[in-house]
């Protein structure tokens, strides 16, 4: 018997123009185009993936990068199993923004254990000439380390470098997260561990 396919929800975040849509389309459709319009709200794609554990259906939400759209995050972030943070290695600004993308995501999606929530970081556009590069691998790795050892990949959506590998990791991380969330939903937080304790929440003196 083949194991049940898992449904995983993945959110892609990052500044406008770093290549989120291109990465998604390279991964899902194996295509690169220079003719994408700016994403408004979020676009939705799916991909079937095999992992060692079980087959997986990834639902990928490719979000808009402009800050103004952040207020609608809640409609898209809720219930996510993994979040992909993307920056452009040729833009220091887009790298610095990762911090606030991460914070914003945690606030709006409010996962059970924010410290444990899986992020995967992608430094995109490594095909561009080395002289244009503003964020070194070392600097990116240091940040990822500091945030709890986040997996980091240097990618090129244009030349299909590392895209497959990066999303394979996303699938695995999302699957782990999903199993843990399952545990939480079996034991909701309202479950009173000690009924006496919940009663005496006020000062009893």
């Amino acid at each position: 018997m083949t194991p049940r396919s898992a449904l995983l929800k993945v959110i892609i975040l990052g500044d406008s123009g770093v290549g989120k849509t291109s990465l998604m389309n390279q991964y899902v459709n194996k295509r690169f185009s220079t003719q994408y319009k700016a994403t408004i709200g979020a676009d939705f794609l799916t991909k079937e993936v095999e992992t060692e554990e079980r087959p997986v259906t990834m639902q990928l939400w490719d979000t808009a990068g402009q800050e103004r759209f952040q207020s609608l995050g809640v409609a898209f972030y809720r219930g996510a199993d993994c979040c992909v943070l993307v920056f452009d290695v040729n833009s220091s600004k887009s790298f610095q923004a990762l911090e606030s993308w991460r914070d914003e995501f945690l606030i709006q999606s409010s996962p059970h254990e924010p410290e444990e929530f899986p992020f995967v970081v992608l430094g995109n556009k490594v095909d561009v000439d080395e002289s244009k590069r503003q964020v070194t691998q070392k600097r990116a790795l240091a940040w990822c380390q500091a945030k709890g050892n986040l997996p980091y990949f240097e990618t090129s959506a244009k030349e299909a470098i590392n895209v497959e590998q990066a999303f394979q990791t996303v699938a695995i991380k999302a699957l782990q997260q999903e199993s843990e969330e399952q545990l939480f939903s079996d034991y909701p937080d309202s479950f009173p561990l000690d009924p006496h304790e919940t009663q005496s929440s006020g000062c009893s003196c």
Partner: peptide
């Protein structure tokens, strides 16, 4: 399905997409 997931764009770009 949340309306915000598709109708946001319908309002933001006046259905031009």
């Amino acid at each position: 399905v949340e309306f915000m997931q598709f109708a946001f764009r319908w309002m933001n770009c006046l259905l031009m997409r």
